[in-house]
Amino acid sequence: MSRFAVGDRVRVHDLWPPTPPTHVRTPHYVRGHEGVVERICGTFGNPEELAFGRRDAPRETLYRVRFRQADLWPGYDGSAADHIEIEIYEFWLSPAGQ
């Protein structure tokens, strides 16, 4: 059961450095920012465990989250309508405002 639904506003955690140090698939530039769930992609093995070769890594819900470019980059040089969409695992997300 996924924690968030399409259209929910979510906030990306801003944990750095990660503990323990590993390979993460959440880019720096969205950490600490809020966006909107665009779709639920399904469940996939947690890459932070797969990075250590754990084939039986627990499965996690993966979302696509849409961010306003103007929110991510100070002085963004483009249209206010421009967006970026990226995939983020559930454990990196909180409800917006938290």
């Binding site: 590993t22 390979h23 890459p47 932070e48 797969l50 990075a51 250590f52 070769g53 754990r54 084939r55």
Partner: peptide, 14 residues
């Protein structure tokens, strides 16, 4: 072959 994962490859590159 399930010998290693793509995420292992990426972690090693990083």
């Amino acid at each position: 072959r399930r010998i290693m994962t793509v995420d292992q490859l990426r972690k090693g590159i990083e």
